[in-house]
């Protein structure tokens, strides 16, 4: 009985140890990587909602990430708004507006045309960030973004504390998204992914569901963009561009779409791999990334999360048999 309980609790215990305890004992530069991992974890989960639960392949998702980052930067650097409780609702509103407009346009098409439209719309934000020099700093980016004011005492903004600040956001986003995908709404999204036409014949306004999912995904991407701007202290056009969109897409594919933790694992793999590869051979990072992607597609079609789920199932079966 105790072993079975342990098997069930194992994923939570391991996640808890990795997220809460491990960063405490690691050097500060690794703590920073953990913060980056969680930020990209939120970003990847937001795309995972679209890709894994609705079946929409977007190549412009970084637009919302960039929009969140630039809004944070512009508020802090041009208007002196550093308070988190003021900045967050504004970031949410801006990304909500942009994703509502982009979704309205992109969802007129489907399949590969949707992919191309999201790519084009994403590049629109990239171009605005690049060309609107007075507001965004153009090619040089917008630098000097300070860490947020929380309105209550916060010990310090060293990597460890920033990590725990991001962890709060990550957990909030994770549980909110978990509620969404396990709700009646999330169940409908999965139905749309599996058989969109049948859903219409069951009376579901499919377009409306996809549109709302697109906006929600944009919103969470915007929040991760805000956290990344605070983390880096700078936002540059590439944060909103195709390279970032492709990177997050790879995170979802490698981690495995269709679950929430899959994209988070994918984010972890990419962020830490990038970190370690860059230590030894930074110029070859894209080559390694390409190889990882090819290997993931060839040998782990459903993503790493499928392996983990399979492992958990096997363990449950094994210990279940011992008990019975």
């Amino acid at each position: 009985m105790r072993r079975r309980l342990l098997t069930n609790l194992a994923p939570y215990i391991i996640s808890g140890l990795i997220l809460f305890v491990l960063p405490l004992v690691l050097p500060s530069y690794v703590q920073s990587m953990f913060a980056k991992f969680l930020i990209f974890g939120i970003f990847a989960m937001s795309l995972g909602l679209l890709y894994g639960f609705v079946g929409l392949y977007s190549l412009g998702h970084a637009a919302f990430f960039g929009a969140g980052g630039y809004t944070t930067g512009i508020l802090a650097c041009h208007y002196g708004i550093e308070n988190l409780w003021v900045a967050t609702p504004i970031v949410v509103l801006v990304t909500l507006l942009i994703s509502a407009i982009f979704g309205f346009i992109a969802l007129r098409a489907s399949g590969v045309y949707f992919l191309l439209l999201t790519l084009a719309l994403g590049q629109l934000i990239f171009t605005v960030a690049w060309k609107w020099v007075t507001m965004t700093g153009g090619d040089n980016g917008l630098s000097g973004i300070p860490r947020p004011e929380l309105g209550f005492p916060w010990p310090a903004w060293d990597p460890a504390y920033y990590y725990y600040f991001v962890l709060v956001f990550f957990l909030a986003c994770f549980f909110l998204l978990r509620q969404i995908v396990n709700s009646s709404f999330g169940y409908t999204l999965r139905g749309i992914r599996l058989n969109e036409n049948r859903m219409r014949h069951l009376g579901y306004p499919v377009w409306g569901y996809k549109y709302i999912a697109f906006i929600i995904a944009g919103l969470f991407a915007g929040i991760s963009g805000m956290l990344f701007a605070y983390f880096n202290g700078i936002v540059v056009p590439s944060h909103a561009g195709i390279t970032t969109s492709v990177l997050v897409f790879l995170m979802v594919v490698i981690g495995g779409p269709g679950t929430l933790f899959g994209p988070v694992i994918g984010a972890g793999v990419i962020v830490f791999l990038q970190f370690f590869i860059s230590l030894y051979t930074p110029e070859h990072w894209p080559l390694v990334l390409g190889c990882v992607f090819v290997a993931a597609v060839m040998y782990a079609r459903g993503g790493l999360s499928t392996w983990l789920l399979e492992l958990q199932k096997r363990m449950k079966r094994r210990y279940g048999n011992i008990e019975s």
Partner: peptide
């Protein structure tokens, strides 16, 4: 219809 927080 659009219930997002109540588990299925």
């Amino acid at each position: 219809y659009f219930q997002m927080l109540r588990p299925m």
